[in-house]
């Protein structure tokens, strides 16, 4: 019974951290699907979101709910701006140029944060004040409840948005064939902007949830969840929305189980080994489709 409870507790832990990975992975996968690029600055949007929340709550004393909304809006605008300024001029450039630019944007964001907020970690208390609940001897923290509920809502909403709305269909069309989408009258640039806005808004949510969990701000805080979420997106099949959701949750659970039952130090090594094994067996990722380059 104790073991079962401990396994359940670790499963919930895994789902909580996995939810955050999944939210970030959705941004990677959507941008990859539409713009065919890996946005390596995506992880740093989490950091921007965390600092933005800190500024709104602790410095400007905005109440929690409007502060969250402002943070999400700020990150969405930031995503659109980064795309317009850094990536759009490279729309027809080699992929390597775009990739290097993305890494450059990542360093720019980290160093801007370093310049403004300095390197000393800033303590920041969780804004999520939901009491924990007890079910059959198992304690579920308020943070876990909020994280899982928010993620489930976002996943359902995003799935409906992509599959049922006109903009969602435009996104699917652009991700499959930009030229053909343009011939339908779809504004590809606008669709890419919308995708960056959505991806960055999701990263902001992830940043808020992340900072409520770790309660300390440093300029590089987005790097680790960013890279893990990238792994999650590749594991699930980059370009696939259900793949990113599944990959994020799976990664969180694997990580939390390895930490609890195998070794804390080895948990990251185990996570990345799983990625290597999956890619060896199915190079397109678990839910990814094998894409054939059309000539």
């Amino acid at each position: 019974m104790a073991l079962l409870n401990s396994i359940l507790a670790q499963l919930l832990n895994g789902l909580r951290i996995g939810s955050i990975y999944a939210l970030i992975a959705l941004g990677y996968t959507m941008v990859y699907g539409i713009a065919k690029m890996i946005n390596f600055a995506h992880g740093d949007i989490i950091m921007v979101g965390a600092y933005a929340l800190y500024v709104f709550v602790s410095i400007l004393h905005v109440p929690a709910v409007p502060a969250v909304i402002l943070t999400i809006a700020f990150c969405a605008l930031m995503g659109i701006t980064i795309e317009k300024v850094a990536y759009k001029p490279l729309r027809n450039a080699q992929r390597l140029a775009v990739l290097i630019t993305a890494i450059g944007v990542s360093y720019l964001l980290q160093n801007l944060a370093l310049l403004i907020f300095k390197a000393t970690p800033i303590p920041f208390g969780s804004i999520i004040k939901v009491p924990s609940i007890q079910i059959a001897g198992l304690t579920i923290s308020g943070l876990t409840i909020v994280t899982l509920a928010v993620t489930a809502l976002i996943m359902a909403g995003l799935t409906l948005f992509v599959n049922k709305t006109k903009i969602g269909h435009a996104m699917l069309a652009v991700s499959e064939d930009q030229g053909a989408a343009e011939l339908m009258g779809i504004n590809v640039n606008r669709t890419i902007s919308i995708t960056f806005a959505i991806g960055s808004a999701l990263a902001a949510v992830a940043g808020i949830l992340y900072i409520c969990q770790y309660e300390s701000l440093i300029p590089t805080l987005g790097a680790i969840p960013g890279i893990k979420a990238f792994v999650a997106a590749v594991l699930g099949g980059i370009g696939s929305i259900p793949g990113a959701m599944f990959g994020g949750l799976a990664l969180g659970i694997i990580e939390s189980m390895s930490k609890a039952y195998i070794s804390t130090q080895l948990s990251d090594a185990i996570v990345f080994s799983v990625l290597v094994i999956v890619l060896l067996l199915k190079p397109s990722g678990i839910l990814g489709k094998l894409s054939v380059e059309k000539v």
Binding site: H169, L172, A173, E176, D177, G179, A180, L183, K294
Partner: peptide
């Protein structure tokens, strides 16, 4: 109507 049809195969 483009060459090679270019329908959206996933839709």
């Amino acid at each position: 109507v483009p060459e090679g049809r270019r329908v959206f195969s996933e839709l």
